[in-house]
Amino acid sequence: MNGSVDEESGLPDEAELARTDIEMSFRVRPLGNVVGDLSGILGAHATELVGAFYPRRVSNKVNVVLTELVNNVLQNFVDRESDIQVTLRLDAERLVLRVSNAATPAQYDKVRGIVERIQATPDPRTLLRDTIRERRKSRLRGGLGLLRLVVENKFQLGVSYDQSVLTVESRIALGGLA
C-alpha cells in the first residue's frame, strides 16, 4: 500500500514512511573485546533508525529482537577471537533479523532443540509461563529470550548451522503493525 505526501507540510505521511526499505548489517570481532553493553548500543541505534520511518510498535520489536539475540551470543560464545554478524532487513511487509556466530555442534543442537520445542508446543504462552517459573527457582540466566520473541513479539524462528557458524533468524510479517 502506497502512502502519499501530506498536502500541508509537503512531507511523506505515515503510510508512505512505513513502506521504506531498510537494510543494515554489522560485524564485531573479536567477541572477547566486548566489555560494554553491545546489545544496548546496537538496539538503541537500530531503534532510532527504524523509528524514523516506522511506528513505535515496530521499532520496539527491533529493539527486543536485537537485544535478545545479541545477548544470547554474548552470553554463550566459546571462541574469544570469533565474530558476531547481524543483518536486519525491514520493509512494508516484513522484519527479518539474522544473527550469526561461531558455535560448537553441541550449542547448535541446544538452540535447535529450544526452537523445535517452541515450534512444537500448541500453547507457547503456557510454555513461557512454565519456563519462567521453573528457571526463576534457581534464578537461571538466559533461556527465555527465544520464547519471549515468539510469545510476546510473534516472531517466527529459524535456526541453521553451516561451517561451524550458527545462525538464528527471527521473522515477522508486519501486516497491521506498520
Binding site: N71, I132, R136
Partner: peptide, 12 residues
C-alpha cells in the same frame, strides 16, 4: 521503556 529477559525475575 524496556525490559530484557534478564530483568523478568526482579519484576516478579
Amino acid at each position: 521503556k524496556f525490559c530484557n529477559s534478564n530483568g523478568f525475575y526482579v519484576i516478579m
